[in-house]
Design a protein around this nucleic acid. Structure first.
Lengths: 137, 137
DNA sequence: ATAAACCTTAGAGTTAACACTAAGGTCAAG
DNA sequence: CTTGACCTTAGTGTTAACTCTAAGGTTTAT
């Protein structure tokens, strides 16, 4: 299977596949006499692993780590994998908390604003952003 | 007031101030005979506006838009400002939802994992990422 | 045999919001 | 009068995950 075919199968771009190979996420396949990459089922499995790991929020760097562990299962523990997962979950939780603060502030601003089509001379949102104590306190 | 002093007052870097000026977020100040930037209260107010807008999650591009509206209040409506705010809030909400899906998936993975210090030969997390139907469905 | 569709590499471009560097000019203090 | 802290510009580097481009070689179908 050449790169275009594999890309179609897993619904990724050929550029992405070359990029994953370059980043060590996808094994370098054999080459045909003319230099074309020749992929097999192993590569498809790797790409599916990558896809699923992306779907749960892991970055490519984290996925590389997971793939390495998966490849050397005997030398790593469940604990290690679980720790990676929990650490990632906590990072995600932190980011969610930050965004929720944004969301609350934006909601509050919008609520206070009349939203009229008249000139924004006394717009409460602009005022809040201008004034020292327009927000919180 | 020179750039270093202003930067200290608002707790931003001098690099950031020059960057904001270049991006049209901070008015270009007068220059001294030797070319030094000379700032006044107006600039401090602009920077505080930027700071507050950042604190509620607006990007610099969005802040530029808000500053422009704030500068030309007469030509814009409250509605316009409110729309920007609501649009941003909805984007934030979408991102939160995505991260919450990540969080749920990661929690589920972690929950299923024994987390033992024994080799990861049968780690449920790795299995879930490998298997076609390890996750969801 | 030729055109379309595919493949190759290397390298530049994208986004956001700055940080850092170099090479040099200026200002205040002692 | 010199040292150190400050300022200037222009340009490069950072991170993530690719995308795009150029310039060319290969395969397949007709």
């Amino acid at each position: 299977m050449r790169i275009g075919e594999l890309a179609k199968q897993v619904d990724m771009s050929t550029d992405a596949l070359r990029y994953y190979e370059q980043q060590g996420l996808l094994s370098a396949p054999q080459r045909s006499a003319s230099g074309y990459r020749q992929y097999g089922g192993k590569h498809m499995a790797q790409l599916r692993f990558i896809r699923r790991a992306k779907d749960v929020g892991f970055s490519l760097e984290e996925i590389a780590e997971l793939l390495k562990i998966n490849f050397e299962k005997a030398e790593h523990s469940c604990q290690e994998v679980k720790d990676l997962t929990l650490k990632k979950r906590d990072l995600v939780a932190q980011r969610i908390a930050e965004l929720q603060r944004f969301h609350a502030s934006l909601s509050q601003l919008a609520e206070q604003c009349c939203g009229s089509s008249a000139p924004a001379q006394h717009c409460s949102i602009l005022t809040a952003l201008e004034d020292i104590d327009g927000l919180n306190q």
